[in-house]
Design a protein around this nucleic acid. Structure first.
Lengths: 266, 266
DNA sequence: CCGTACGACGAACATTGTTCTATTGGCGAT
DNA sequence: ATCGCCAATAGAACAATGTTCGTCGTACGG
């Protein structure tokens, strides 16, 4: 109690164990209160709901303790009985989003499609709440729902027959890329207004790239179109396909080829 | 003048043109002032220096206008004559870091090694200033030094013979992955303290993963070691190698029927 | 019936980004 | 040489943020 807290307080190991074991009993005293009263008691779930609405409305940078509190009709201090930090609130949001991702039963026949599907689900969830991917990067292994998605992705990758080390690293890379992709998209949308209030769209960016001095930026000027393309999620699927493609080179569909393509890694 | 400014003010197109054309004249009136006085006038360069020192000391979240100002022996208001925003300061920091990246002359014989080298330089620059990669994600095409690195990476990728679209997307993916990787590393270091002040290292995380219920997290528990490995930058090089590996061969990304050796065709 | 304990909450504190306004110092123009 | 002007600097202030303290109210255990 009196000991000085770390600047960024992580979870202790006992708390971690308790968190795992108590994954079924849903809130110790909250249920009791919820049953007794109609006064809409403050729950972690309600906080998460309000926070998600706030992010959906104004982006992650507008996710304020006060905004969440007023959305719940109370003051900011009331939240700290259920959530330790703003950072922990972010973790909870990511957990909620991850809990809504459907994980297929791994099928070695179509593991690439399955993996892409899960990644697309994550991407859509993150894109729906602009900037929320920022919270996903600070999470190491905090929430069980988040770990569940990681387990599912790892399961699919392992079903491909890839070695465990490659599967683990590829899953990590995919998750990292997804968050980066969504963060970039959120940033682009956020700063998408000019001083005049005009929206900077792809054509605008392309035009600006073409204005660069061709002696210093020859390729950028020449390929401005390719650099700014990728409207839909073509870029997204392209990158992830690239990642998955090199994993365990297609498990030799036409017989046991004794020709091993170069393994990435060391 | 009196027009209302956008919430996130981006750069106008005239300013963009001016920024490009004035890339050589180094600070319009700053040089003049610097020559006349020993009173250490405030320059953009000095602001960037102070800001980088602040980030190196306490991470990107401790990068405060006030901290930078006091490091320069003045108040926070004095900075706004040279820097428009905290966001623009972040862009400048990324630009400074990018300006220190050495770009090789593209050699089609060893384009992979060259690309990896540039990525490693970026990674090391970002890792030296924890959390600064956050600013790299919000930059679209703001700084010339940043664009220069993009041009260099694109040049190497094009030298590989890959189609322009693939080269552009791959470069983007690599940059995105680098920033995500560095952000994750910064977050891990930041939250690396327990409530007791103990440091959570990889062994600790691995142990925690093993504590998960095996019925729900079979693969995570089994491969906890692989998930937490990647001490050095093995994970980094692995992922980028995976990305580069699949670049050239088939122009159609979806169906890699058989692998062509790199053809001299374009 | 009362005591107690815990969740809710109002107010407050330290800190942040940013702007308004005054001041000052040097340089060009007369 | 003197005047005036403009840009840079800085002090103070404002709105908004995360977080904590102490109080209050109410519901449950006795």
């Amino acid at each position: 109690m009196a000991g000085r807290r770390a600047a960024r307080d992580a979870i202790s190991r006992d708390q971690w164990a308790a968190l795992i074991s108590a994954r079924n009993s849903d809130s110790e005293s909250g249920a009791r209160r919820a049953a007794g009263r109609e006064k809409t008691p403050i729950t972690v779930e309600r906080i998460i709901d309000a926070a998600l609405q706030a992010v959906e409305a104004g982006g992650f940078e507008d996710l304020t303790m006060r905004r969440v509190a007023t959305r719940l009709g109370t003051g900011p201090a009331s939240l700290y009985a259920h959530v330790r930090n703003r950072a922990e609130l972010g973790d909870l949001l990511i957990g909620r989003l991850c809990s809504q991702v459907a994980l297929p039963a791994p099928d070695p026949a179509c593991w690439r499609e399955q993996f892409m599907e899960v990644c697309a689900q994550l991407r859509d969830q993150f894109l729906r709440y602009p900037g929320i991917a920022q919270a996903a990067l600070t999470v190491v292994p905090a929430d069980l729902a988040t770990l569940r998605v990681g387990e599912g992705m790892l399961a699919i990758l392992l079903a491909s027959g890839a070695p465990a080390q490659q599967a683990a690293w590829a899953g990590d890379a995919a998750f990292l890329y997804i968050t980066g992709y969504c963060l970039e998209a959120a940033a682009a949308r956020r700063q998408g207004e000019d001083v005049d209030g005009r929206v900077i769209d792809r054509a605008e960016i392309e035009e600006r790239l073409r204005m660069l001095p061709p002696d210093l930026f020859p390729h950028t000027v020449t390929h401005a179109r390719e650099l700014t393309s990728g409207t839909g999620h073509d870029r997204f699927t392209f990158t992830l396909t690239l990642l998955l493609q090199g994993l365990i080179p297609p498990p030799s569909v036409s017989g046991p080829g004794h020709r091993h393509p170069p393994r990435p890694g060391r």
